[in-house]
Design a protein around this nucleic acid. Structure first.
Lengths: 145, 145
DNA sequence: CTAGCTGCAAAAGATTTGCATGTCC
DNA sequence: GGACATGCAAATCTTTTGCAGCTAG
């Protein structure tokens, strides 16, 4: 509910420097808005929220910035079956529950999977860097409708 | 390597009838090609393969058919972070390994996750219908390059 | 100063839609 | 026969790109 925590902001700036990325007002605001958002927004959605504060911000910059930050691992692109890409700040390991009716994404933790070793067959595939569970179903809000 | 199994084809036709979908040559061929494919093809890719056998088949029909079949649960749309949607026939429960270099998708089984109960926090969310693991990394082929 | 960003506009890529014609049941 | 599908073309939506001016370091 509050604004972006001081540490998170400092960590972001340090990570940008380390990655050789310039710290522009646009990048700072885009990251701040994404970190504050709880709903895995798309580029379009983020832009809509940001232009109120930053009227000159272009949608292209939002697209470009999200792509740049994601490619440096500062944020994550979330897999969905929608046509629009969604993003989130890379935080604690977590998993996604997606409602196939309203498309809302709910985050949850599942440490037994985080800690579990992948099956043997996977070992010969290559190097696995992360694993996420995506569960689908219908959320209570939609079930009640 | 062989063609679509007899049972699979019969099951498909029965499922179409049950869903109230007409059995057109296009639908049959699209499903057959997808069932034969091992690479989670996109609409574009499927169309490229099918026009050789069915020169009049339009790309629109492939898009429409994939959408229709997916919405009836006969095939699945696979989540990736690419812009193109990919499909697979709904088969045994399985999970995906995606190479972030070549984008190839490798299927694997992981029964301990299939059988595991979701964490308690999820129970109050709604009704979960399926859960899939998506793991990312680099496959051996790309590691060697 | 200058490589890296941004904004603008235009392009490209993926998917959807309207409509007339064809075809499954 | 009539509802549903298809093919075509055009539209739409999302994302990317070229370029000139701006700016952080």
């Amino acid at each position: 509910m509050n604004d972006l925590s001081q540490e998170q902001q400092v960590a972001f700036q340090a990570a940008c420097r380390q990655a050789g990325l310039r710290l522009t007002p646009q990048r700072i605001e885009i990251f701040r808005e994404l970190a504050r958002a709880k709903d895995h927004p798309s580029a379009e959605t983020l832009h809509r929220r940001l232009v109120e504060r930053m009227p000159s911000l272009s949608l292209d910059t939002v697209y470009r910035t999200l792509g740049t930050l994601a490619s440096h691992g500062l944020i994550m692109r979330v897999d969905t079956i929608e046509s629009q890409a969604r993003y989130e700040v890379a935080q604690l390991l977590h998993h996604h529950l997606i409602c196939r009716s309203c498309k809302e994404i709910f985050d949850f933790q599942w440490q037994s999977v985080d800690n579990a070793a992948l099956p043997d067959a996977v070992k010969s595939w290559g190097r696995v860097e992360r694993k996420n569970v995506v569960a689908y179903g219908i959320c209570n809000k939609c079930l009640k409708k």
